[in-house]
Design a binder for these strands. Structure first.
Lengths: 351, 351
DNA sequence: CTTGCGCATGTTATCGTTAACAGGCCGTCG
DNA sequence: CGACGGCCTGTTAACGATAACATGCGCAAG
């Protein structure tokens, strides 16, 4: 008990006793058992962050924002990776409830209603990051997918593109739906018809981006621009375009949601919307800890952060030639075009 | 007690009671309190992974390897990010001891002897990843830095390079020292003198890579090739080269330790040594859990995994002109060279 | 002189689980 | 017929910290 008082600086202790206890602690290398404390106090000072893909620097950056903030406020963080699987997510949620984390920051895998409900039944506060859910009474932090998509697509329309394809993630994931909505709004506002055959739903990964691009290249009318709703999708698309002998931006413009961290790309040339990922993580952790401290209002709060469009060299006006389907079997015609223009991924001429 | 027996499937319970308990559990949404279990059993079934830079995909991949393996064997993982700071590291170690994690997987920030000693004093097993330490009785898993560096440098020597600069991390970090050792051995074996002024120690990040390259370009004799011992350093170097108007590989070859995950680079063109990062994480987790299970031998084990060299377009024979110092104040001469050759980061001509 | 308060330390009970032990019932075997 | 072992359930104590309460001392106010 006396030791407890010394450690927590609570109650009365004589300076002499305090000193002796401290000496003993140092001598024995005593460290308080956090488990016992947590069991007694019913608080673990631990948050959990569940993301769908820890390989994605977007989520890594969110994780840093969460961890830095949580740590500064005395919380530890458990990271969980669901690989976009709702089953894995629910499994993690069960473990986290048993481990009595104080709250969960969640990037929902798809619907994820079950996970959130389960957490709430057990009295655990939830903050939803990046994506939104139809569940009431949950704090949410994300960037504006609809507006970001809208500005990218408007940019491409402004360059003269009339046939713009979207490559996106699962239809059930809110970011995917919102970005398609922004795309549609930009088309409508420009008086263009938004054709469903130009909207490709897939997965948020490289393989899917590749696969969707191959499909796209067989679609009529052939798009002159691609809007990829995630960086990995863009990588896959670029690989497919390169294999097809198409150059960017001459044969195909491409714009992407999500930028890479500075210094990551050897040569940043993708027109992109950059999300404030670190800030999303930071704000989410703050909302959570505020709520745990009882300083939060009863109703749920939603923070939508603005994202920033960065125009680079991957978007340009379309060729003046009439759009025509790309012939996979006759690449020679394309090859000539390649040789007269800039290849994919080329840098600016250094000054 | 009866409930405990049902949950753990231990002892005798009548089928009837078991069923009734299960119904009650489902009705109440009961979840066992892991804290109490852990307090009682003195095992948390939790590992910690301390890395120096979670932004680096190399460490992210290690983290995935650790988490997947640990999870499959019933362990949870706490991730900690030290930003290469020994102070942060020690702070984390203290927290982890208090939280009574079962073991720590550590990428040591530099010396890190204190952290490891503290952990060992408290009876926590440690597995050191990626880097090695002078501490006895610690399991270690890493890839072969010396051999990887040696093969990269030998490759460049084979291309005809005589002046090869190294840009590396802190001298006290073992990977940095080992890669420089491999570099020196390759030079010596080729009968070349290894000149100290071509060895630049800095930090494992983009800014340092940039800064070291600027310094390098003012060094005589001017190197015709760069060996960057980490991907971020290479990124910084490439930025500096681009700003200086130098092309890769014509004006400067560059090879790098650490590859990026497949699909990450729009156009993989860097000659690199790829480390088996996922495997490192996996093996480390396995060693740890084996030791926790008591199945490990008393003496420390060290696993050194081979790494693989991938030759790409960033390395080529040096120009035939005599090496001469690069004039920052007269870029015009260089500019001409740029226009007649491939710019930095350019792709192959698509077929 | 007594009461009461501030200070310092010690005791008890509790958080939720489970190892260890206790006890009761039934069937079988010597 | 009694003893013993298998089956089932219940009680006690312990993991380590700490809130709440108890105790004891010294000093000042009434």
């Amino acid at each position: 008990m006396t030791v407890s008082r010394v450690i927590n600086d609570s109650g009365y202790i004589s300076p002499d006793t305090r000193a002796r206890v401290k000496v003993a602690i140092a001598e024995l290398g005593y460290m308080p058992n956090a488990l016992a404390r947590q069991l007694r106090s019913q608080r673990t000072k631990t948050l959990a962050l569940i993301v769908t893909d820890i390989s994605n620097p977007f989520f890594t950056t969110i994780a840093r924002g969460v961890e830095d903030t949580a740590k500064a406020l005395g919380y530890a963080v458990m990271f969980c990776n669901t690989y976009e699987s709702e089953v894995e997510e629910l499994e993690y949620v069960r473990v986290l409830i048993q481990r009595r984390v104080d709250g969960v920051l969640l990037v929902p895998a798809a619907g994820s209603v079950d996970s959130i409900q389960l957490l709430q039944e057990h009295g655990l506060p939830v903050v939803v990051l990046d994506r939104h859910v139809r569940v009431e009474q949950v704090d949410q932090v994300r960037s504006d997918s609809e507006a970001g998509a809208h500005s990218l697509v408007r940019h491409m329309i402004g360059l003269g593109h009339r046939y713009i394809a979207v490559l996106t993630g699962p239809q059930v994931v809110s970011t995917s739906a919102d970005r398609v909505a922004g795309y549609r709004r930009a088309l409508t506002e420009a008086g263009l018809t938004s054709a469903d055959e130009q909207v490709h739903f897939g997965e948020y990964n490289e393989a899917s981006g590749y696969e969707m691009t191959v499909r796209l290249l067989a679609t009529l009318p052939l798009a002159t621009a691609i809007f990829a709703t995630n960086n990995f999708i863009a990588f896959g698309a670029i690989r497919a375009l390169r294999e097809a002998g198409l150059t960017i931006p001459e044969d195909m413009s491409i714009a992407v949601f999500d930028d890479l961290p500075k210094g990551w790309m050897l040569d940043p040339f993708l027109t992109a919307v950059a999300q404030p990922a670190y800030e999303i993580g930071k704000r989410a952790a703050e909302l959570m800890i505020e709520r745990l401290a009882g300083d939060a209002p009863a109703e749920a709060r939603t923070i939508v952060l603005p994202s920033e469009m960065i125009t680079r060299r991957s978007t340009a006006p379309p060729r003046q030639v009439a759009a025509m389907p790309f012939q996979r079997t006759a690449p020679s015609r394309r090859k000539a075009a390649v040789l007269t223009s800039q290849p994919v991924g080329q840098t600016e001429n250094p000054a």
